[in-house]
Design a binder for these strands. Structure first.
Lengths: 212, 212
DNA sequence: AGTATGCGGAGGATTACATTCCGGTTCTAG
DNA sequence: CTAGAACCGGAATGTAATCCTCCGCATACT
């Protein structure tokens, strides 16, 4: 039924819902989608009761987080596509700029649980596919421009990116944050079209990522 | 104490011990060191009882796995150092060849639990430091040869490597395996000394990795 | 001011794990 | 070949962690 939570909800409830979503996003990104519900509630500054009232179970929450994030990434990607004329630069910007957003996209790509939900929800799936399309376009374009090495596919990039951003332990969050940015930088250089080493196997495409 | 398990153990016990260690290494690498003991036992083809008889508790197992792996990596690294005259090539070989071994070195770098054990066990720690020394030498050498970009440190490489190798979900283990190899390849190209993008912040050194 | 809507968080039920224990089995020394 | 020490497997127990419901109280809207 999906009755417009925007209009139906009381103001404070609305606010709480948003806080929960935001908190969940952050925590999921760092610790995966299996963290105790209570932790999420605490981070959102609400009681577990509230959390459960708004999202009947964990899966619903995961779904909501995924939706929210995918939408955001998609918007970003489209904005970048509109602004940037070079596909390569668009790609680079997307990778660099969306670090925060991707933090949870990646989550959604690496967790088994999340994956199951993805598969089962047509709407989430549609969004995901749309994002992959945009990415594909960037990749193709960048190759045509001669700026991206020919032997990689969108799948390679997605995997690389998702893998890299798994939060890493470090002395401090700052170091971790810096490390992540540096890794992305190195990766981008590795993606550049210059005589480098040969990669084994075939390029991994966005289709290779599809579940089942 | 530490009575030489090699000589004291009955033949079958010895075999089981090795199987457990091997299984634990594989599973730890994929799922981290907090997996249920029973899963490890099953993978090793033994009962939980056997597992506990050989390793009194989880920490002991983690310690043993770490030791075993670190030793192996160190041996590899030294062998490579002896064979290879170019530091850059040594570095590349180390990264490429040790994928299997690193699978659990990385583990040992990313898990909080494992980290605690590391810190508490002087012997494991010594091994780790020794590995970092070798890595440092390779890095310095490769820079001197003009083959490695100047703005990275051994810490960057360790982090990058450790992060990349966290097993990723994929349609099949084969794809995951391939993806990992490709990621390493791209990363190596990104590390090459060529005019690339500037990395933010300062190089992360091996010292930056040290706990506390 | 009245009432529908929402809130927090204690607590019961359940599940997942770690670890122990012991009857039965397999080595190996003699 | 045989005795008995050394080992095994895995059922059973105890415990800790989480999920999720429920209900008296608070807050927002009209």
């Amino acid at each position: 039924m999906t009755a417009d939570p925007d209009t139906t909800l009381r103001a404070d409830a609305r606010r709480n819902r948003d806080q929960i979503l935001a908190a969940a996003k952050g925590i999921f990104a760092v610790s995966g989608p299996e963290v105790p519900m209570e932790e999420i509630a605490r981070a959102a500054g609400v009681g577990v009761g509230t959390l459960y009232r708004r999202f009947p179970d964990r899966d619903a929450l995961i779904r909501a987080v995924a939706m929210d994030n995918f939408e955001r990434v998609l918007v970003d990607a489209k904005a970048i596509a509109a602004e940037e004329t070079s596909s390569w630069r668009a790609l680079v910007r997307l990778l660099r700029q969306s670090v925060a957003l991707q933090l949870s996209v990646q989550l959604t790509m690496m967790s088994h649980r999340a994956l199951v939900i993805l598969k089962s929800d047509p709407e989430v799936r549609r969004l995901r596919d749309e994002i992959l399309e945009v990415l594909d376009r960037f990749v193709d374009g960048a190759k045509a421009e001669g700026r991206l090495r020919e032997d990689v596919g969108a799948g390679d990039i997605a995997i690389l990116f998702a893998t890299l951003l798994r939060q890493m332990r470090a002395k401090s969050p700052d170091v971790a944050e810096l490390a992540a940015r540096r890794c992305v930088g190195i990766m981008i250089d590795g993606l550049g079209a210059r005589p480098g080493s040969e990669l084994p196997g075939r390029p991994i495409t966005s289709r290779d990522l599809d579940p089942d």
